[in-house]
Design a protein around this nucleic acid. Structure first.
Length: 272
DNA sequence: TAAGTATGTTAAG
DNA sequence: TTAACCTACTTAC
């Protein structure tokens, strides 16, 4: 489930298990064999996240840059580590813990300068305390692109994925097709603050929950949800089901090759 | 066994 | 705009 909250959680998980520890690194699958050999036996000093990018710092040996993409997964376990299967791109292990990486879009050893270049091309991340929405607002408020597309653009905001996009627009009642330049300043401020709060909860619980307590199924007299893709949500992957608030059928559409979900009544189309 | 799907990104046309 | 890439799971035949 790789949106930004997942990656920040993974950075935390690595710090807890490996920070300050000498780790063994290997690439059972083989595609990161050279990189793994270069950090094998070194101390993992840092684990950081920016948006959906994870950086594991090995001092002078550089950083392992990981991007999970759509299917990548990181799984943790305690000793004894089972034999790694042939899809494990990277295994990190100490006497106590191991972490197996499968299916990432990116797993490469990079330098400080290459890492900096990645930070430079990413927008502000609601989960980084030093970031704020100002830089994002400058781009959004000048853009004719739809706010739904802008939210997924990692140069505009880093870490937002398809679930948070759909949910945050619903929670503010914003039409996903509204052009960025037509978005009100206070709506953007509210969306940014909401993203920060929701994603922080996402890190804490390692899942995405967006439904306010008063709208939870129990409170609304509905049966609890049975979906398996995460937490409790309003619109994401609920196409053709009734809106939790107004019972209008949730709509879905293709936008830039991603599935978009929204309630046409709670998020009415902007005039013009 | 094959096809389809997924919370993503990049490069080619 | 399309295809390509990476894995695992579910559904169809």
């Amino acid at each position: 489930m790789p949106e930004g909250h997942t990656i920040h959680r993974l950075a935390l998980d690595h710090r807890e298990r490996f920070a300050g520890e000498t780790v063994r690194a290997s690439s059972p699958q083989g595609r990161f064999a050279a990189g793994a050999a270069l950090v094998d036996g070194r101390v993992l000093e840092r684990a950081e996240a920016h948006g959906k990018h994870l950086f594991l710092g090995f001092g002078p040996a550089g950083w392992i840059h990981i991007h999970l993409g759509l299917f990548g997964k990181l799984g943790f376990g305690t000793a004894p580590a089972p034999p790694a299967t042939d899809t494990v791109r990277l295994r990190l292990a100490t006497g106590e813990h191991h972490a197996d990486l499968r299916g990432p879009t990116a797993c490469a050893l990079i330098t400080d300068a290459e890492k900096q270049a990645i930070h430079d091309r990413l927008g502000p991340d609601p989960l980084r305390p030093e970031d704020d929405g100002e830089r994002a607002w400058r781009r959004i408020s000048r853009s004719r692109t739809t706010v739904a597309a802008l939210l997924l653009d990692q140069k505009v905001v880093a870490g937002v994925g398809n679930v948070y996009r759909a949910e945050v627009l619903f929670r503010r009642g914003i039409d996903p097709y509204l052009p960025g330049k037509a978005l009100a300043r206070d709506d953007w401020d509210a969306i940014w603050a909401d993203l920060a709060a929701l994603m922080r909860e996402g890190v804490r619980h390692n899942r995405i929950d967006t439904v306010r307590p008063e709208h939870l199924p129990e409170a609304m007299g509905r049966p609890p949800r049975v979906d398996d893709h995460g937490g409790e949500v309003y619109v994401y992957r609920r196409a053709h089901q009734p809106c939790h608030l107004c019972a209008t059928e949730i709509r879905t559409a293709d936008l830039a090759a991603r599935n978009l979900f929204w309630c046409p009544r709670c998020q009415p189309a902007h005039a013009g």
